[in-house]
Structures are given as structure tokens and as C-alpha cells.
């Protein structure tokens, strides 16, 4: 009903002819009535609706703020997490590099050791072979010497049998007995 007040005033005034400031189309009573209507509307809305609306808006704002804060926090945590992950990855890469380097080193030293052992074995085999060859040569020399001595003995015996008769033997014996005296 109050809303109709300005309409009624406006229609009454429309019947009258405008003067002074009203000639500009500005009606102070209408403005006043509108102001009063506005104030009444304001108080009614404030009493019945504004609190709820503001409360709801406040709630929504809080929720939004909360969400924004949470987002910011999560963003921050994500950044932290990314940094930590990156740090861990770097550490892991470093450790992996160290392990690989150690592995290479160990493999290298094992290879060197194996080479040295193989060389040592080869040297030992060679020395053993040399020794065996030397032994075989010595043995062959000994056998040859023995065979030669046997042949010399046989030849000497044959010559003695051929050349020495009873007379020569007697002379030999007499000489030997003379030496033994």
C-alpha cells in the first residue's frame, strides 16, 4: 500500500501545472515521498531480510575466503612438496651417480686384479715350463753321458782284450804291485 503512495502523489501533481523548480521536472514532495519510501523499505528489508542476506553473504564470503586460504595453503604446500621432491630426486641422483662411480671403480680394480693374477699365472706357467725344459735337457745330457761312458767302457774292454796278452798283463801287474808298495 505504501508503494502506491508515490503513484497517487504523482498522478495528483500531474493534474496541476508545474511552477518554479517544478518546471524543471523536479518535485520536492515526490523526492521526499520517495525518500520516505526508500527509508521505510530500507528498514523493512533490514529488519526482515537484510540480516539473513548479509548473514548468508557473510557465510559465503567466509566460505570463499576459507576456500581461497585453503587454496593458497595447498599451493604453498604443493610448492614445498615439489621442492622436497626435487631435493630428494637430486639426492637420489647424486647417490645413484656415486654408486655407479663406485661400481665402475670396483669393476676397474677387479679387472686390474684379474689381469695381474692372470699375468702372474702365466709367468708361473712359463717359469715352470722353462724349468721342465731345463730338467729334460739335463736328464738327456746325463743319459747321453752315461751312454757315452758305457760305449767308452765297452770299447776300452775290447781294446784291452785285443792288445793285452799274458806277458803284458804280467808287466802291468808287476807295475801295479810296485806302486802299491
Amino acid at each position: 500500500m505504501i508503494a502506491f503512495v508515490p503513484i497517487f502523489i504523482a498522478s495528483a501533481e500531474a493534474a496541476a501545472e508545474p511552477e518554479g523548480i517544478a518546471a524543471l521536472g523536479i518535485d520536492p514532495w515526490a523526492i521526499l515521498a520517495q525518500a520516505v519510501t526508500f527509508l521505510v523499505l530500507f528498514f523493512l528489508i533490514k529488519k526482515f531480510a537484510l540480516t539473513k542476506i548479509v548473514g548468508t553473504l557473510e557465510e559465503r564470503r567466509k566460505t570463499i575466503d576459507k576456500g581461497v586460504m585453503l587454496g593458497i595453503e595447498m599451493e604453498k604446500e604443493k610448492t614445498d612438496l615439489d621442492e622436497r621432491v626435487e631435493a630428494l630426486l637430486q639426492k637420489a641422483r647424486k647417490e645413484a651417480d656415486t654408486i655407479i662411480a663406485q661400481g665402475h671403480e670396483e669393476a676397474g680394480s677387479m679387472l686390474k686384479e684379474a689381469e695381474a693374477q692372470a699375468q702372474h699365472k702365466a709367468d708361473a706357467l712359463l717359469a715352470d715350463a722353462h724349468n721342465r725344459i731345463a730338467e729334460d735337457i739335463d736328464k738327456a745330457k746325463q743319459e747321453l753321458k752315461k751312454d757315452m761312458v758305457e760305449l767308452v767302457g765297452m770299447a776300452t774292454a775290447a781294446i784291452i782284450r785285443e792288445k793285452v796278452d799274458a806277458k803284458k798283463d804280467t808287466q802291468l801287474i808287476e807295475r801295479m804291485l810296485e806302486e802299491v808298495k
Binding site: V164, D165, A166, T170, I173, E174, L177
Partner: peptide
């Protein structure tokens, strides 16, 4: 001995 001994050798022995 390889041959029989003479008397002289026996005396020396």
C-alpha cells in the same frame, strides 16, 4: 787275474 800268474808275481804278492 785274467791270465795265469807267473812265479815272480806270486812272490811279489
Amino acid at each position: 787275474t785274467a791270465f795265469p800268474l807267473s812265479a815272480g808275481v806270486k812272490a811279489e804278492v
